[in-house]
């Protein structure tokens, strides 16, 4: 459902091995903290960022540009948080692991 709270942005995959286990895990964990629907689209395929399987099957390689869409009550915060992960290259600070 399109609401006023739909945000659409572009992000770039920076990790050396593409969107692999570690970044993917951080994405899912982050996404689960928001109630908005969060999706990434690449090459015509759309993945629910709360689903590890969806993200794996997206198979986004390094350098790929993905379309991030968030929609729901906390759409802006969610988009910011996901963008930040991509921008910082998924660097994990100790506290973020658990």
């Amino acid at each position: 459902m399109e609401t006023a709270d739909t945000i659409c942005r572009q992000v770039r995959v920076t990790p050396e091995d593409g969107l692999h286990l570690r970044p993917l895990q951080l994405l899912v964990r982050k996404a689960l903290t928001f109630s908005s629907a969060i999706t990434l689209t690449f090459d015509g395929r759309r993945a629910d960022v709360k689903s590890a399987f969806d993200l794996m099957l997206l198979a986004a390689p390094t350098g790929a540009i993905l379309t991030l869409e968030t929609s729901g009550p906390d759409a802006t915060a969610a988009a910011d948080a996901i963008c930040e992960l991509f921008q910082t290259g998924f660097v994990i600070s100790g506290s973020e692991v658990h």
Binding site: Q25, R29, A52, H98
Partner: peptide, 25 residues
């Protein structure tokens, strides 16, 4: 594993846990 070897190793299992709890599955 986390308590014996450190959190970064336990993280491997948290990936497995994410798969088991995956909404698509």
């Amino acid at each position: 594993v986390s308590s014996q070897l450190g959190a970064q190793y336990g993280a491997i299992f948290s990936a497995h846990l994410q798969m088991a709890q995956d909404p698509r599955l």
